[in-house]
Amino acid sequence: MSGDTILNVERLTMRFGGIVAVQDLSFAAERKKITALIGPNGAGKTTVFNCITGFYKPSGGAIRLSHDDGRTIALEKLNDFRIAKQAKVARTFQNIRLFPGMTALENLMVAQHNALMRASGLTFLGLIGAPGYRDAEKRAIDLATDWLRRVNLLDRADDAAGNFAYGDQRRLEIARAMCTEPALLCLDEPAAGLNARESAALSELLLSIRKELGTSILLIEHDMSVVMEISDHIVVMDHGVKIAQGSPQEVRDDPKVIAAYLGTDEDEAAAVMESGS
């Protein structure tokens, strides 16, 4: 198991004053697999994400990321730009956070900051246009173009991201996260606000990312049709603790999950779980 585990969360605890948002949570995400973190509102899912991506310093526990080359990184000790630079973890937010005043292409270029920074020799070589930097910039534009093509936004490369339709912004945000060339992609409710057709397209995009690029994905999602279709492994949280985990089939049939996830209203539980099948 540990050989192909990319993310290992061990006994993670996060307290805010007297409130325990996450308690003793342990789970693992496997390499090149899609792991979903689900649970009712307020279960602590986003808090887990914030601990993984350096927004919160956990009150206890460890978050270990192991790279392909065997390096292990203690994520709870990193913050800020180092999450992307050293740990190669990218994330998106529940509410869209593109740079609205910049073009789609520029959004994807900012995400390649690190690659360009290395080539630009601390800015200076970049400003005078050294050949090495020009090559790097050309590669960056190629990668950005490639991603715009994958998310069907190539013809709008030079439009301001803020003017895009909601669903397009969601896809652009994922493309931008992928332009950082992450080892682990964390998506916070990527299907929120999408219609059925857009959700299906999203599932397809995420599956292609896993299959073609081998990027490990950790996602929080309420849309059960997406979760059930693409997840390899599901972790269910409620009130800050893990209540179940397993394959989509196992989780779907777990009575504890049905009860906790949707309160005790069995009818509603059944209805939502139905939509996932």
Binding site: T53, I83, R97, G101, M102, E106
Partner: peptide, 25 residues
Amino acid sequence: RTRLGRDMRACEQDQTMAALLGVDV
């Protein structure tokens, strides 16, 4: 047109997000 300029504009719009993309704010 330059990387530095893009980073500056990105930080202007959303510092947290810029940092998450690897920009040293």
